[in-house]
Simulated scan of single mutants.
Amino acid sequence: MSEPASAQVSADPAALATDRLGSVVHTPVMRDRITALLGPALTTPGAIYVDATLGMAGHASAILAANPDARLIGIDHDADALAIAEETLKPFAGRVRLVRARFDELAAVLDDLGVAQIDSLLADLGLSSLQIDQRDRGFAYATDAPLDMRMDTRNPRTAAHVLNTAAPGELVRILRRFGEEPHAERIVRAIVAERVREPFSDSARLVEVISSALPAAVRHGGGHPAKRTFQALRIEVNGELDALAGLLPDALDRLAMNGRIAVLAYHSLEDRLVKQTFAQATSDSAPARLPVVPEPLLARFAALTRGAEKPTADEVAENPRAASARLRAVQRIRPGKIPNREENR
Rank of each mutant, 00 (worst) to 15 (best):
M1E: 13
E3G: 07
V9N: 11
P13I: 07
A14M: 06
A17E: 02
L21C: 01
S23M: 06
V25M: 06
V25S: 11
T27G: 04
D32S: 13
L38I: 12
G39C: 06
A41M: 12
P45K: 09
I48W: 04
D51Y: 12
D51L: 10
L54E: 14
A57H: 09
G58A: 13
R71C: 15
L72I: 13
D78M: 08
A79M: 05
A79N: 03
A79T: 06
L82S: 08
A83F: 02
A83C: 02
E87I: 02
T88H: 05
A93I: 05
R97C: 13
R97P: 00
L98R: 04
R100Q: 14
E105Q: 15
A107G: 12
A108F: 02
A108R: 13
V115I: 15
A116H: 07
I118N: 06
D119K: 03
S120Y: 05
L121N: 00
L121A: 15
A123L: 11
S128A: 14
S128P: 08
S129Y: 06
S129H: 06
Q134K: 12
R137E: 08
A142R: 15
D144K: 05
A145P: 12
P146G: 10
L147F: 10
M151P: 09
T153S: 14
N155E: 04
T158D: 03
A160I: 07
V162L: 15
L163S: 12
A166H: 09
A167I: 02
P168H: 04
R173P: 02
I174W: 01
F178T: 01
P182G: 07
E194K: 13
E194F: 01
E194N: 13
R195E: 13
S201T: 14
D202P: 00
L206E: 07
L206I: 06
V209E: 06
V209K: 08
I210N: 03
S212Y: 00
S212K: 14
G221W: 07
A226C: 07
T229R: 01
F230L: 04
A232W: 07
E236S: 02
A256R: 11
N258L: 04
R260A: 10
I261G: 02
A262Q: 03
V263Q: 00
V263K: 00
Y266P: 07
H267Y: 06
R272L: 02
R272V: 03
Q276D: 13
Q276A: 14
T277W: 00
Q280V: 14
S285Y: 00
A288Y: 03
A288F: 10
R289D: 15
V292R: 13
P294N: 05
E295T: 09
L297F: 08
A299V: 05
R300Q: 04
P311C: 08
A317I: 01
E318T: 10
E318M: 08
P320V: 02
A322H: 05
A323T: 03
S324P: 12
V330R: 00
I338N: 02
P339V: 02
N340R: 10
R341Q: 11
E343A: 15
N344L: 11
